[in-house]
């Protein structure tokens, strides 16, 4: 009458000591199977409920018009709430700063008096460049990639997506590289590099977010 399975089990010293009978072993087996089914059902439920929409619905490229029309460094930054960013003109160049507070996703406001970004929810403050000054935010505001394009839409220069450093514009101290780029771009159009600087247009790619180092 004894099944070979239970005789086999009885040879294992530990199992022999707790005296499993056949029914108990089978009960654990089907209970375990039910448990596994439950875990699989939770997994299936999560897959069902987790939205499949790609993150960053805003992800488009925002056209901000000619470079010459941007606010200067002493004016309030250009606000684009539809893209959740500001374009800040600094002496070093252009920065696209996301207005989403890195603390809990509230949208920061520009305080012109202090020339800071202030989060209305928990009081985090950020400099005009987006670096953290005060409050519970864990890091600087995120940045987006700024692009300079010429009249034909060809890319002249863009923010380094690794450092997020300000993008120099003609006239800013670091503009040498930009001038070279512009010269290269104009060479393709077979124009002499010494000609009048071509008119540049500014775009911001909201699909490429740059998370700044915590130290800044």
């Amino acid at each position: 009458m004894e099944l070979s399975l239970s005789r086999l089990l009885s040879h294992l010293p530990l199992l022999a000591r707790i005296q499993l009978n056949r029914r108990e072993v089978l009960s654990y087996a089907w209970l375990g199977a039910l448990g596994a089914l439950g875990v699989a059902a939770i997994d299936a439920g999560l897959k069902f409920a987790l939205p499949r929409a790609a993150p960053g619905k805003l992800g488009g490229v925002f056209d901000l018009g000619p470079l010459a029309n941007l606010p200067t460094a002493d004016m309030p930054p250009l606000s684009r709430p539809d893209g959740r960013f500001w374009l800040v003109t600094t002496p070093q160049g252009l920065i696209a700063v996301q207005n989403v507070c890195t603390h809990l996703d509230c949208l920061c406001n520009w305080d012109e008096q202090a020339r800071q970004f202030v989060c209305p929810c928990h009081g985090s403050r950020f400099s005009a460049e987006g670096s953290r000054l005060d409050g519970p935010a864990p890091r600087a505001l995120d940045r987006l990639v700024v692009q300079l394009v010429d009249a034909h839409g060809a890319l002249v220069a863009e923010t380094d997506p690794h450092t997020g450093a300000p993008l120099p514009t003609p006239g800013s101290p670091d503009s040498q590289t930009l001038a070279d780029d512009a010269a290269m771009a104009s060479e393709e159009d077979e124009q002499p590099a010494e000609s009048i600087a071509p008119e540049l247009f500014v775009r911001v790619d909201t699909g490429r977010k740059i998370i700044m180092a915590t130290s800044s």
Partner: peptide
């Protein structure tokens, strides 16, 4: 507490 609005605001 903790959130300082600009004075005019």
């Amino acid at each position: 507490y903790g959130v300082h609005l600009p004075a005019a605001v």
